[in-house]
Design a protein around this nucleic acid. Sequence first.
RNA 1: GGGCACUUAGCUCAGCGGUAGAGCGCUGCAUUCACAUUGCAGAUGUCGGGGGUUCAAAUCCCUCAGUGCCCACCA
Length: 740
Amino acid sequence: MDKAYDHKKHEEMIYKLWEESGAFGPSSSGKPYTILMPPPNANASLHAGHAMYTIDDIMVRWKRMEGYSAVWIPGTDHAGFETQFVYEKNLAKEGKSRMDFDRATLYQNIYNFVSENSGLIFKQFRRLGFSADWQRNVFTLDKNVTDKVFETFRQMETEGKIYRDEYMVNYCTHCGTSLAELEIDHEERIDSLYYMKYGPFILATVRPETKFGDTAVAVNPKDKRYQEWIGKEIEVEGLIGKFKVKVIADEMVDPEFGTGVVKVTPAHDPNDFEMGKKHGLEIKQVIGLDGRLNDKCGKYSGLKVAEARRVVVEDLQKSGLMEKIDDKYTHSVGVCYKCRRVLEPMVILNWFIKVDELKKPVIAAVKKDRVVFSPRRFKKQMLDWLTIMHDWPISRQIAWGIRIPAWYNVDENPNMEISVLVDDKKIRGSVGKLMSEGLSFEKIERGLQATFAPKGARYVVSPTAPDSRSLQETDTFDTWFSSGQWPLVTLKGDEFSNRFPTDFMGTLSDILKFWVSRMMMFSLYLAGEIPFKNVYLWSMVADSKGIKMSKSKGNVINPIELVDKYGADALRMTLVYGVAPGSKIPLSEDKVRGMRNFSNKIWNIGRFLQLMYEEYGKEVSWPESYELTNEDKGILNDLEKLISSVTRGLDTFRYAESTEAIYEFLWHKFADVYVESIKERKNDPGALAVSRHVYLMCLKMLHPFMPFVTEAVWQEFRKNRLMGIQEEWLIKASWPVLDK
RNA sequence: GGGCACUUAGCUCAGCGGUAGAGCGCUGCAUUCACAUUGCAGAUGUCGGGGGUUCAAAUCCCUCAGUGCCCACCA
C-alpha cells in the first residue's frame, strides 16, 4: 500500500468496477427499499446544492448493506421555464429572441440545446460516488411520462377538476409568461406615491399610468369624509379626455392610507380585481402582454410601463392635476424570480386545477404522520401552506414543456386570436379573419406562435389532433405538473405493489411546497396512496460563513473542484459531519481538507495493520479464538457501542451523530490509543485479530459516507491473503450487527 | 402583521436540569516509528441582556434585543 491515500489513483477505477459488477441495481432478494432522485435539470451542471444528494446515496448504500433490495432511481427534469430562460439568454447573445421563431422550431431548438448539455450532471454525480441505478434514468419528456401526464389531465378534466378562466396572474413581460404565486419574489422598493386630483377628490397611487384602466373610485364605507359621494358618479379629468366613474364603498379600503380614496383598476391590480368582481366593475385592460400601454391609452399607447409613468406624471404636473409627490414611499413589489423584473398583474386566461378536494387527503396524511417530515418543524410549514393553498394555475406561456393537450377547432372558434409567423412576418388576429383573408390552415399550423382562445372556447382533450381543422393550445404545463407525478412515472409494473410508497425522499427544503406537496397530491389522487414514507429536508449549502452562494458575491464553490483536489469522500463527509439537521450547510475548503486528512488516516491505519500481519506472516483467526486482554475487550466493547450509535444515527437521519461517533472512535480511540498499544504486542495473534475485526467493522460503517477510500482499503486487503477478507466488494458487504 | 427557528471558544456548530464540548484555526513541543494529510500538550467562553422556578439552569418559564427562514398585506 502507498504511503498516503491518493484519491486520484483509486476513485475512477473503483467506480467503474462497481458499475460493471452491477452493484447499483437492486438485489434479487431482500425487502425493497426505494429512493427516487429529485430530478435535476437535464441541462444543468453540478452545483453545491446537488452535492447534498449525498444524503440519498448514504441511505441507499446503507440499506443495501443491511440486505435490502435497495435502489435509487435517477432522472432528469426538462425544467420548462428555467431552461427556456437559459436558452433565451444564449439567443440574446446572437441578437435573437423567441419571437423570431414559430413554436415548433423554438421547441426543437431548445430540445437540441438540452440534448447537447444533458448527461453532464450524471457524469458529475458519478464523480461523487453516487450509486444510483443509472440504467433506469427517466426524463420528464420521455414518452411514458408525457403519456401519463396526458392521462392525468384527461382524468381531471373529465372529473371537472380543470377549468379555464380569466384570472389575475402575475405576468413577466420580459419572460413572456405568467407565474404561479410561488414563483413570485417580493422585494422592498422605494417608489413615489403620487397624490393626484381626481374629480372632486385627491387620491394617492403609485401607478398613475394605469389611470386609463380605472373603472371606479373606492372609499371605506365608514369613512365620514366621503359618505355623500358613495354610489354617485363623478367626472374625472383624464389626460386623454374626461371620463366618468362610480364611487363605491368597500371594506378593503384603508381610510388611513393616503387620503382614504383609491382608484380601482380591476385589470391591473389584484385587490382591485377582487373589488371589481364584488361590485361588478368592468375589467378594462390597458397594458398588453408586451408590457406596453395599449390603444385605449390615446397618445400614450405604445409606451412601456415605466416610461408611461414618467410621461403621465409630467403631464399631470403640467396640467395642474398633481397635488404632491411623496418620493420616499416604501412598499414591496412582486418580481420575477428569474429575471428580477417587476411583474405586471394582468388578467389573462389560464388553465387551473381545483385544489380544494385534492388537498384534503394530503392534509390528512400529513396530520396523521403517514408521511414523516424531518426535521419535524417542516410538518407545520407544510400544513400551513396546504391550508392557504389556492387553485393552481398550471398553464405557462412558454414553448419548452409538455403542451396542454387541448385542441381548438378553427371553424368552431373563428374569433380565437392567434399569432403566426408567416414568411418571417409576425401576424396577429382572429383565426377566422386571417383565414378569410386567404391564410391557409396549413400555414397557420406551421407558423403558429401562440393561441389566445377566448373564454368559453370549445376544445377537445386529445393527445393528437382530433381532426384536420384544430390547433393545439400553445400553453405548456407548469413543470411541477409533470414532476409532481414523479413517483408515478419512475416506478413501473409490479413495483407499485412492492416499492410504493417509496421509503425516503431527501430534498432541498425550498421545494417542499412546489414539489413535495404536489407529489403527495397527485399520488393520493391518482393512486390513492402516499408517495413516500419519509421526507428529509436540508437547507441550502452555503459558504464557510453560512452565506448563500451567489455569482455576484463571488463565493460560489464548485464541488467538482473540491473532489479533484481532496477526493469525493472528503467532500461527502464535509456535508454531513458536524451539520445539524435542517440547518444551512457551510462548505469550507478547510473542512474538506480536514476530512481529506481523515481519509488518509483511514488508509494509513489499514496500511499499518497490513504491515503488522505481513511481519507476523501467518493467517490469524477471529477474536473469539484467542485469550484477550482487558484492553482488547475494552475496544471490542466500545465497538459494540459504536455500532449501535452509528446505526441509530442513520435510522433517525442524524448523520452528524453517526459520522462524529466513527471519527472520534477510529481516530482518537482506536488509532491513537489501541493501535499505539499493540505496537508492543507484535507477535500476539489476539491483538492482530481484534484490531483487524474492529477496523473492518469501521470500514463497513464508514462506507456509506466515504465509499471510495473504504473500498480501496478493502480491495488492498483482498489482494493480501493474510487479511482474511471474504466478501468481494465492500459496497455489497453486510452491515455490522451487534454481538448479543 | 402572523408563524417557525436560532443567538454557546476566532469561525462553523454539538450539548438541552448536576458547575462547558467537537471540527477547523491558534500556541508550544516531539517525531529516521503506519500516517507532518502525524503525535502529545496547551490557550481561548461571566453559554445574547434582564427576571423567575429549583438544593442546582447553557439546559425549564417569562421578558427584552438581535439574526435567519416561511407566509400574508401594502392602492
